[in-house]
Computed example of a mutant assay.
Amino acid sequence: MADGDGGPDQPATDDLSQDTPDNELRHRGTLDVRVAAIRRIAERASLDVAGTVRRSSTLGRLRGTAAPHADVRVSDRTARIELRVACAWPAPVSSIATEVRDTVLRETSRLSGVPVTTVDVTAVAVSPDDQTSRRTVA
């Protein structure tokens, strides 16, 4: 064995001059994704699901009923999301909620780089009068 390769008689040396993937990762900075960014990604991803609508009004924002609305908690470099979405009535609310959960879990993890462990979705059906905008599919 060559010197410094971690053979039985000597420990492996850490040659930082080599450009190996491990050495590159050790010298990179860290990415601090803010909770607000994760919240925005989750809310936007939920609107990509057919059947969801944006519900927003001054009174709704004050009362906390605007949708979509995400509450994000990050700990140990993973995120947990509680999400409220609005669905245009009539709608298959339960299947929309399932698709929202899967979409938000996948897209938020992918776009933020933070693993999302849980997405809890509360879906409410709203009448056409309560909708601010309707998602259209071309």
Rank of each mutant, 00 (worst) to 15 (best):
S109R: 03
T65K: 00
S112Y: 10
I81Y: 11
L25S: 14
V114K: 03
I41N: 06
I81W: 12
L62R: 03
D19H: 08
T108Q: 10
R54D: 10
M1E: 00
A138K: 10
S94R: 11
N23R: 11
A37I: 03
P115L: 11
P11N: 02
V72T: 06
V104H: 12
E24M: 13
A2D: 04
R73D: 12
G51K: 00
T103V: 13
R54K: 12
Q10W: 05
V116Y: 04
T108V: 06
A88C: 01
V35H: 08
V137M: 05
E24F: 14
D19R: 09
P92W: 03
E99G: 11
Q10F: 09
R44N: 12
E107N: 00
S17V: 05
D129Q: 13
T108I: 03
T117R: 13
G51T: 02
A37P: 01
L105H: 15
S133G: 09
S56V: 06
P21V: 08
A88Y: 03
R106S: 15
T117F: 09
P21Y: 15
P128D: 03
S94M: 06
A12Q: 07
A66E: 13
A45N: 09
G60V: 04
D102M: 03
R26K: 10
P115D: 15
R28H: 13
T58G: 10
V49G: 05
R55S: 12
A36F: 07
D129L: 12
L31A: 12
V114F: 14
R61K: 04
S95L: 07
D32V: 06
P128N: 04
P128C: 02
R39N: 07
D102I: 01
L111V: 10
L59S: 02
A45H: 07
A79F: 13
A91P: 00
G7F: 14
D120I: 12
S46D: 05
R101K: 14
H69I: 00
P92K: 00
T78E: 14
D22E: 14
M1V: 04
R28T: 10
S133I: 03
P115H: 07
L59K: 03
Q18R: 11
I41S: 06
V124G: 01
V85T: 12
E107Y: 01
N23E: 15
D102E: 15
D14S: 06
L105Q: 12
H69C: 05
T132M: 05
L16G: 04
A123N: 08
H27D: 08
D32K: 08
A67W: 10
E24Q: 15
V53C: 13
G64Q: 00
A79R: 08
P92F: 01
R34N: 11
V93W: 05
R84K: 09
Q18I: 14
G60A: 09
V126I: 10
I96N: 05
S133H: 07
I96D: 13
S46L: 08
V33K: 11
D22C: 01
G6M: 13
E107R: 00
R106Y: 15
P21S: 13
R54I: 14
G29E: 12
V124R: 01
V119P: 13
G60M: 04
E107S: 02
D102K: 02
T13S: 02
L31D: 08
R77D: 14
V121T: 11
S95N: 06
P11E: 14
S46Y: 11
